[in-house]
């Protein structure tokens, strides 16, 4: 097991290097740069070429690509992401500010998704082809059909028109004011969590149906084991693995992928930062964010694989 873990961790290195090369080159293929975004896109009448050259020099954009790349890679090896080309602030600071919100939202949305998906999926499987099953299926298909940002807009409109209330517009950390914090984040967590629970519910239902037809379940029933025990001790452990994978990967996605939902609820999260960094051609910040998301995906995948072995003793790695 230990050697498996070490091998998996080492395998991440070439993957991350590939991601680094790809994002570095892709960003530079797209027309425009941060200096143009800063000075030309604003519609101002006087545009100084000298100023733009000066700014490019300050940012190192006048250097050959190989030098820019090696300089960036050198920084990465020292865990120094450098400065944002747009704000001039340390990237670590730019990310840290948004990370708390994005992490909390990802945890809350994943919790909502898990709390909905697992019981509903089990219930639908247990009551297959009854009205309960149909109701759960309609509920989950509706969740799949509705984009979470649309549901978010709907939530805001209902709160605004019916209750004449809006969530707070500025993020307050949980430890500063839990009420303000939850009043802001519970709504996007519900909107996003519901969307992701839909996938999980359907996956849970089908996995459960498959497991419930297995011989060992029939044997357990024949032995007279209580239904609750059959479900928790035998069926759930086997059926939950694919659901765990989906929810875990979605967690990684939620960290940096909630762009529109963040816009709708005016959340200062990593998704918005990502989009703005790309739109502004902030190469250093975009590169750092891509590396952060790629690393998160790899780590989550790794943790899920290890969890598989822990949950299902039949899966052992040599």
């Amino acid at each position: 097991m230990a050697s498996y873990i070490i091998k998996r961790l080492l395998a991440m290195v070439p993957t991350l290097f590939g991601v680094a090369v790809l994002i570095f080159l892709l960003l530079r293929v797209v027309p425009g740069d941060v200096v143009e975004a800063r000075y030309i896109g604003q519609g101002s009448q006087f545009q100084s070429q000298e100023l733009m050259q000066l700014e490019r020099k300050k940012l190192g954009l006048d250097q050959p690509l190989w030098r820019q790349f090696t300089s960036w890679m050198g920084g990465l090896l020292r865990l120094d992401f450098g400065l944002s080309m747009w704000t001039g602030a340390p990237i670590i600071e730019e990310i840290r500010l948004r990370f708390a919100l994005s992490l909390q939202l990802a945890i809350m949305a994943s919790t909502v998704a898990t709390l909905l998906a697992i019981p509903l999926g089990i219930l639908a499987a247990m009551k297959q082809d009854t009205w309960i099953d149909y109701a759960v299926r309609v509920f989950s298909i509706a969740g799949l059909a509705m984009p979470s940002f649309w549901l978010g807009i709907l939530i805001i409109l209902v709160m605004l028109i019916v209750f004449r209330w809006l969530p707070p517009m500025v993020f307050t950390p949980l430890w500063v004011n839990p009420w303000e914090n939850l009043a802001q984040l519970i709504w996007p967590a519900l909107a996003v969590g519901y969307r992701y629970s839909a996938v999980g519910t359907r996956m849970m239902r089908s996995a459960m149906l498959e497991v419930l037809r297995e011989d060992y379940i029939r044997t357990a029933r024949a032995k007279g084991l209580a239904l609750k025990l059959i479900l928790t001790r035998h069926a759930l452990k086997n059926a939950i693995l694919p659901v765990l994978t989906i929810i875990s990967l979605e967690f990684a996605f939620l960290l940096g992928g909630l762009v529109v939902t963040e816009q709708v609820f005016n959340l200062n999260g990593l998704g918005m930062l990502f989009v703005e960094a790309i739109a502004r051609r902030d190469y250093t910040l975009t590169q750092a964010l891509v590396m952060l998301v790629a690393t998160t995906f790899l780590l989550v995948n790794f943790v899920v694989d290890v969890a598989y072995a822990w949950i299902d003793p039949r899966i052992r790695y040599r």
């Binding site: 805001i156 809006l166 517009m169 709708v264 005016n266 918005m272 703005e276």
Partner: peptide, 19 residues
Amino acid sequence: AIFMRDSAAQVAAVRGERA
């Protein structure tokens, strides 16, 4: 001054009398 990129969110803020 609250930074708010989305125009719908800006309108909602004025409509909800938060701005």
